[in-house]
Design a protein around this nucleic acid. Structure first.
Lengths: 338, 338
DNA sequence: CTGAAAGCGCTAACAG
DNA sequence: CTGTTAGCGCTTTCAG
């Protein structure tokens, strides 16, 4: 491997030292401005650095300092629509703090340890999205004292670990209440997200609470799986229709799924919101522009990303462990009937 | 920095060697399966590795091997809607090839070299999106023999460098021809993307060619800046309307801008496509679901990402330099009048 | 088949 | 204020 054509050897600190007529340690000192150095020495070193176009090698620094100045971001799927704001805010926050960002999609399976994609061997800490890492792995990280911040999930029992979550239950309750009280919907479908995902569980809880509050029974026939995914939700909607389960509204679990539900409904010549109201969760990029404009719950992904990144940095640098639940808010548009 | 609570020291190769009763070199050999080792030695080492939960430290490996097994992806903006498929395909391709992915947004300004976010000091190569890096920097990378693959842009004059681009001109020409020939549009606005961006330039060229082909003059009053951005495009549309420039169609430059154009038109009580046809470029996530469904040009971002990643890997590992133009295709929906 | 020894590029005491 | 001296954890000749 690594046999490209013309590899000009990159200059080392030694070359800079020679060029500037000083020792390596002096060069190191001025580069990290640690300790004093005479103004003219500094100038000579800086000139040599510029001349040779010298940049210190990250692995050499990392080896001696035992820090990578890199943080990881582990996700299950990079292609979700809320990733752009999330990634963008995390990246900019950690960059401002002087770190680099290593990204990996983690399949929850490849945990043969030997090829852990992100961990203490290559990062100073990481943000773990939802169920990218297993409980076992998270516990192990915590016990090792390796900084991890959980995103969209809570710590496993018994470990203390910073996390940032969103408010799911009460906003879902408000959303469903709107459907029931304002639009007089009675048979509301709920589409679950991926199995055991905390957001999905909490949204289901909000759904149940709203029904209860209004003395509506929870009909198991109205609960299906949308997987936070348009295709799965589209399919699920068709199945509900095929089974002749009567319903007058759908809470799709998230916006992605809502798009699938709307497609299926249209396909069956049902109109939204007249025949069936559809609501989502996330208020993603497209929510305001699709037809009909989607009633949903807005989630400030950029704020979440910034909080998570900030929490990680403060954990890494000061050992502070801080958690946060960011609030969300119902956004009423046309798809609910308004 | 780095003073978290309870840092249990991670095991080193030395600990594994002691635990397994062999030397460090033997452990290294079995871990990288280089050279022979007796089956029982292998077993003992593997057991020790598992027991101690040992993972080799990336910087130590990198220092000695002079490879990081990491590639960079440099973008100007992580929050674009085509990032998810692009990131996802790049990440999965390079992960399959055994690399990690370091991501950075590069502001084209912070090139004080000393803090180059991605470069030979921390990666084995990188994919550079559009104008994330300046010509000067790209040339320097090439001269150093540092592998760079350009995405959505061509190499600066004089350097040879793999790149993957999309077909802009002919698909734009086809798109505009459709507006002219099928829908009899005569005054078609073109909204430029970011200054000097190659995609924007090529799309403008396609626009001009189509007009010429149909003996229509290019009216400078119909060319404005949409910046590949909804807000800017919305604003630009309002300005055109305010200036009473007559037009019957808009090619927004990309889908993002098209959404902004549609918003502005609606705001002025103009109907799309009846009063004004609107077309975009990219066929992003929302294009099919907005109102009206957007006529656009579909761009296979996942294919592009995979090609770029593949090109980079083959450059890094074999020194092969291969370029590619991926083809795009007009997708006719409702917003053009169909 | 395995161990000893050297060194990757850098930083961090410690003297001067 | 600056140079000398040790390593950081790992891979890799080179002997055995």
């Amino acid at each position: 491997m690594g046999s490209s054509s013309n590899h000009l050897k990159r200059p080392t600190i030694h070359d800079v030292a020679r060029e500037a007529g000083v020792s390596k340690s002096t060069v190191s000192r001025v580069l990290n401005n640690r300790g004093y150095a005479s103004p003219e020495t500094i100038a000579r070193v800086e000139e040599a650095v510029a001349d040779l176009n010298y940049i210190p090698q990250a692995s050499a620094r990392g080896l001696v300092s035992q820090q990578t100045n890199t943080v990881g971001f582990a996700v299950n799927d990079l292609s979700s629509l809320f990733m752009p704001p999330l990634l963008s805010s995390i990246e900019s926050t950690i960059r401002t703090a002087g770190y680099k960002m290593l990204i990996a999609t983690v399949g929850h399976q490849a945990e043969s340890a030997s090829d852990l994609p992100l961990g203490p061997h290559n990062t100073d800490g990481l943000v773990a999205f939802a169920d990218a890492y297993s409980n076992r792995q998270i516990i192990q990280f915590c016990e090792q004292g390796y900084p991890v911040v959980l995103l969209h999930r809570s710590p496993p029992a018994g470990v203390e670990c910073p996390c940032v979550n969103i408010e799911n239950t009460s906003s879902t309750r408000a959303l469903i209440n709107h459907l029931i009280r304002v639009h007089h919907k009675r048979r509301i479908v709920f589409l679950r997200g991926p199995k055991d995902q905390q957001d999905s569980l909490e949204r289901e809880e909000g759904y149940r609470q709203a029904l209860e509050e209004n003395d509506l029974a929870v009909d198991p026939a109205l609960i299906a799986v949308g997987g936070f995914n348009a295709d799965i939700a589209e399919q699920a909607t068709h199945e509900l229709l095929d089974a002749s389960v009567p319903f007058d509204a759908v809470f799709a679990g998230d916006d992605e799924a809502a798009v699938g539900v709307i497609r299926a409904l249209r396909d069956r010549s049902l109109s939204v919101p007249e025949d069936v109201a559809v609501v989502g969760f996330d208020d993603d990029y497209r929510a305001a522009d699709i037809d009909p404009a989607l009633t949903t719950v807005s989630v400030p992904f950029d704020e979440i990303g910034e909080e998570a990144a900030q929490a990680l940095i403060s954990y890494i640098e000061h050992g502070h462990i801080t958690s946060k639940v960011v609030s969300t808010e119902v956004v009423v548009r046309r798809s609910c009937g308004c």
